[in-house]
Design a protein around this nucleic acid. Structure first.
Lengths: 207, 207
DNA sequence: GCCAACATACCGACTGGTTGGTATGTTTCG
DNA sequence: CGAAACATACCAACCAGTCGGTATGTTGGC
């Protein structure tokens, strides 16, 4: 166990991986670069990870933990109405679109694009991260369905995944356009969709 | 000018780039690999392209041309009601989700994720491709707005881009899950959103 | 009609730097 | 001490890009 308080090489490498890989992509990121960004040597890298791909899997799991803690502590869980919790989640995601593009985009969305076919272990880790995060929304979505007596022809799970798809697509727009504006617009459309699904009357526009 | 009928090295390299890069990602794709897939030599590669990045830009433009022709010739332009044309586009995109994941995912969405920060020229080319394609939907969306006398607080352009975001996000889901099912569900949600936006009455579910 | 001059398309061996990974110390801590 | 946590030195494979050369037109002057 490393000394508490001071970060060990493994943690520094994982933290460095989050920023470097989100900036340059996975394949273009070299082990030396990762070591330099983390302030450790190559020996430390291969002491903690068997290979670069092995670090990618660990980084995806680390990402799941970091984001899991962030969303678990976020205030959107507070409202009594489950729909407000779901909409609060969307608002929370939208509010995260600040600063550099690399700062708010998704590690696993980036990595799975490059490695889905060539490195199955990375694909599995990214799927775990995305699907696991989506699953945290399912209960609130289902409660919103039940509270309004709806019986839709879609599932809470598919809507939760769709929300992730919109976010991932918004990140691609942000990368292509070099800014968050289009991504924010897309998240606004997602919010509007949820309003229309669950509050068709109130959200109808006047003639 | 190359002999008509026989493909020249440049075209073969661009065609090979579409499949290889979509399968392995841009950075992980080597020039030698591209040459092997195209059946040409390295000399031919650097005769036609100054660098690997130069080919990426040309491949993005080639992608725009190929997909532009595909969508221009598609039957979703036929309906008289502009909303039906927009919905027809979504149905057409959904119907394209067949075969291998690499076969239906997007070249420029893949490339921009890796190169948005490091190679500006590639980012511009990918933005041109995505935004140019989205622009082909704007007129129909605007006509659908006008035909129903709506005055929404969103623009036709933002909705067209949102549709691209959903598609790009759906591709990421497909890559993470190793199949098209989740992507198809997401596109279904996009279609439902459009129905709710433009036909709130008819698409209301019965109590 | 003919040939020199030039242009385009392509070939493939070669290079110099880079990359993931290894082998072998050294330090730190219980 | 002994093992885990690093550090240093090194390597073989690989990779983008180069370069001299060939084959096949194309153009223009006489």
């Amino acid at each position: 166990m490393p000394r508490a308080g001071r970060k060990d090489a493994r943690s520094k490498l994982l933290d460095a991986a989050l920023t470097v890989i989100r900036t340059k992509g996975y394949s273009a990121t070299t082990v030396d670069e990762l070591c330099a960004a983390a302030g450790v040597t190559k020996g430390a890298f291969f002491h903690h990870f068997r290979s670069k791909d092995d670090l990618a899997v660990a980084a995806a799991d680390h990402w799941s933990q970091m984001t899991g803690a962030l969303f678990a502590a976020a205030p959107y869980h507070d409202p009594a109405d489950p729909l407000d919790r779901v909409l609060g989640y969307v608002d929370f995601r939208r509010a995260l679109l600040k600063g550099d593009v690399a700062g708010f985009t998704c590690l696993v969305g980036t990595m799975v694009q490059e490695a889905y076919e060539t490195v199955p272990a990375i694909r599995y880790a990214c799927d775990r991260s995305i699907s696991g995060h989506a699953a945290t929304l399912e209960a609130d979505i289902q409660a919103a369905i039940d509270s309004r007596g709806l019986s839709p022809d879609w599932t809470a799970q598919s809507l939760a995944l769709h929300m992730q798809a919109v976010l991932q697509g918004a990140f691609i727009l942000a990368k292509a356009k070099g800014g968050a504006a289009a991504a924010a617009d897309s998240i606004d459309h997602l919010r509007r969709y949820l309003e229309l699904l669950f509050r068709p009357d109130e959200s109808r526009q006047p003639d």
